[in-house]
Amino acid sequence: MVWKPSFMRTASVDRLTPVDALPIGTRVGDEHEITGYLGSGGFGYTYLARRFDGHHVALKECFPFEFCRRNGLDVGLKAHDLADDFEMIRDGFQQEAAILAEFEHENIVAGGLLITAFNTVYIEMDQVHGKPLIDHLSSWFKRPSRQQTKQIGRDVLDALETIHAKGYLHKDISPDNIIINQQGVPILIDFGSAAPFGENSDDDPMLVVKIGYSPQEFYRAGAKVGQASDLYQLAATLRHCITGQRPVESVARLHARAQGRPDPLTALGRKKSKHSAFFGSIDDSMAVLIDDRIATAKQWLKTLKDI
């Protein structure tokens, strides 16, 4: 099941009521027919579809609730002055598809075909059978063990190494964007925030942040970002697996540091345990300032293999 938390205000479960979703049986483009409904997030609905070669795939529709309404089957605007906002998000979808198509990795969802229909775009992806990591974190007996958490860390780092080697940052690693499939393997599913990094990276028109997971530099236009930004998000995700709680927001930590107050996020590695090396590496990747963190996925992966 593909799942995304809702966009801005609330994450109510019954938002999943597909009021404005396309009806089953709708043909999208030349090759796909909607056969079911998988879920919804702030940027739109995800459907199950049959391709005319018989394969079942997931189709993610660009339908940001905040800006869009359905006019017949077409996507229309909620207000007449929202065309630019919608276009910006639709462009982002096209970029997402292009980036996704570049990867072939065990821990990255396969897909990336872009379909244009109904005044919007759709991204075709493999259907991943499993549950998002966030669903495993709701109670302590469902939470992954320390060993499993370490394995999730290794697998996602391996994927990040590939992503960074191609010159991209993922920018949205969080427990709702990692699906644990039926074999227990974590799969990264959402590349909606992914962007090239290096030169010219700071003209991103939209800053998307996820409270608790995004490092402070994601909140600031033009701030220096890098591989260590993705590592912060992974560290926050692993920390959530260990503590069962979403970490304190990075900007609140930044504020405390500026005022000379103690860090509101307590270090995991302080207590002596057989996991303290692993915990210590999470702390190191969650340093408030980007230059204080473990620098690359490769470096962290190496530490984790030694532990």
């Binding site: 938390p5 801005m8 609330t10 994450a11 028109p205 939209m206 800053l207 996820k210 909140y219 609140a252």
Partner: peptide, 25 residues
């Protein structure tokens, strides 16, 4: 309470006028 949010370019320019505590704390 929600996990995700978007800081659009419009909000970014508003950040120049707002103190830290209005936007984040």
């Amino acid at each position: 309470s929600n996990a995700s949010r978007v800081v659009s370019s419009v909000l970014q320019s508003a950040q120049h006028y707002a103190p830290f505590e209005l936007t984040f704390d």
